[in-house]
Simulated scan of single mutants.
Amino acid sequence: MKVRVAILENDSNYLQRVVSIFNNKFGNELEIYSFTDISSAYRCLDDKKIDVFLANENIDIDFSMIPKKCGFAYLVESSDIEKYNDKKAVCKFQRAELIYKQILSIYSEQIPNITGIGESNNSMKTIVFSSPVGGTGTSTLAAACAISIANKGFRVLYLNLENFGDSDSFFSCDGQFDFGDVIYAIKSNKSNRKIKLQSTVKQDSTGVYFYSSVRVALDMLELKVDDYLTLQTELKMLGEYDYVVIDMDFPRNRKGFAFFENCNSIVIASDGSQVSEIKTARAMDAIQILDSYSEYIIQPKFSMIRNKVLGNTENRDEIRVIGEIPMYESCSPSQMARQLSLSSVFDQLL
């Protein structure tokens, strides 16, 4: 199924270029109708059942002529403009991929119950990085793991669900969307979640897909365990990824641990210090008790990576240690993640 898009633009040269690019790059996803005459555009909206209508900011639009189920945005010249005349704005001078994602985002908000976007990927594997110990480099290991998987040719999504995490410390890409758009789609249920997940994701130069961090960290506190489960299910239904690497805070209640039941592997980071090892041991003891009272068993899914190791360490009985990584200094977070991605320790998680 294609998204039907009408573009009303005074500049015929721009119109010709953008239509040509969209037809070449997104011919299987978009059906483009272009106009320089406003009356012809209005007729097309009903005749062709247009899903998204884009119009130049200098054109006076009669919004009574736009069908209720048709999304609308102005085409503007600056990427800094998010709204124009209280309507959504799309910068006309940006990469076609970014305009395409904004079109999908507008479409998702108008069509809340559409299905058939992607196919369910029951083979998608979920790897969680979470630790009861702070400051051991859990986020860096998660980012490194994602890069390592991408280097092997798999499609991988890095998903930071920490309350105060920052995906943009490790990955970068142009685009105005962030994870806040995903949170809104999940909590409001007013837009098609699968299309929103597809339209707001970004891809780093390493090949890793990711969502930019929310602008206000407090937005992350809106997510509950049930929302995590919904998000994981939607990602499977999207059918885009072989692996999803989740970086999240260590659970504080039984329901939080229940999320781990739906994950393939859970990795704890420890720096090998006495405090770190004690906290990890206490966490594993708690998980063993929870397993004895629960219908699900999660302890066998746990493994440990010792990070920032300065000396020799001992193996532990309560958790499998899959590798050790030495201390690196004088690196930015993104440089560190790329360096660590070369380690073979992540191969054991595939």
Results as ranks from 00 to 15, higher is better:
269 A>N: 14
258 A>Y: 13
240 E>G: 03
260 F>I: 02
199 S>D: 10
222 E>Y: 12
202 K>T: 04
235 L>G: 01
239 G>R: 10
225 V>T: 11
299 Q>N: 04
261 E>W: 00
281 A>N: 00
217 A>D: 04
229 L>V: 14
233 T>D: 10
287 I>K: 10
248 M>I: 10
243 Y>C: 04
236 K>W: 03
182 V>W: 03
289 I>R: 13
289 I>K: 15
218 L>I: 13
190 K>F: 05
194 K>P: 02
219 D>F: 10
185 A>K: 03
269 A>P: 15
179 F>R: 07
284 M>H: 09
236 K>M: 13
298 I>L: 04
174 D>I: 07
229 L>M: 15
253 N>D: 15
195 I>H: 10
215 R>E: 07
286 A>K: 10
243 Y>L: 01
245 V>Y: 01
182 V>C: 06
259 F>I: 12
225 V>W: 08
263 C>E: 05
244 V>Q: 01
189 N>Y: 04
209 Y>D: 07
215 R>G: 02
244 V>R: 05
186 I>C: 05
282 R>E: 07
279 K>D: 02
179 F>Q: 11
231 L>A: 01
220 M>P: 11
242 D>V: 04
278 I>E: 11
180 G>V: 13
272 G>H: 03
265 S>R: 14
250 F>L: 06
299 Q>P: 00
235 L>I: 12
265 S>I: 06
190 K>V: 05
293 Y>E: 08
251 P>G: 07
189 N>M: 03
214 V>A: 02
227 D>H: 14
199 S>F: 12
235 L>Y: 00
179 F>C: 08
267 V>E: 00
257 F>A: 03
256 G>Y: 04
223 L>T: 05
224 K>M: 10
228 Y>Q: 08
291 D>K: 12
176 Q>D: 14
197 L>Y: 06
240 E>A: 10
258 A>G: 07
224 K>T: 09
212 S>Y: 05
262 N>M: 01
207 G>Y: 00
201 V>M: 08
197 L>D: 05
187 K>M: 12
263 C>R: 02
229 L>R: 14
189 N>L: 04
215 R>H: 06
236 K>S: 11
174 D>G: 09
286 A>R: 10
238 L>W: 08
235 L>K: 00
274 Q>T: 15
196 K>V: 15
190 K>L: 10
257 F>R: 04
219 D>Y: 14
267 V>G: 00
173 C>M: 11
276 S>G: 15
228 Y>N: 15
248 M>Q: 11
265 S>T: 13
241 Y>P: 01
293 Y>I: 15
174 D>V: 05
176 Q>L: 09
196 K>R: 13
181 D>R: 06
296 Y>N: 10
177 F>S: 14
289 I>S: 06
198 Q>C: 07
248 M>L: 14
227 D>S: 08
208 V>D: 00
280 T>C: 14
282 R>K: 12
233 T>R: 11
298 I>P: 06
251 P>W: 01
299 Q>I: 02
227 D>W: 05
228 Y>E: 08
186 I>F: 02
195 I>Q: 02
199 S>M: 13
300 P>V: 09
265 S>W: 05
183 I>V: 13
251 P>F: 01
231 L>T: 03
278 I>Q: 04
188 S>E: 13
209 Y>E: 01
267 V>Y: 00
291 D>G: 12
242 D>Q: 06
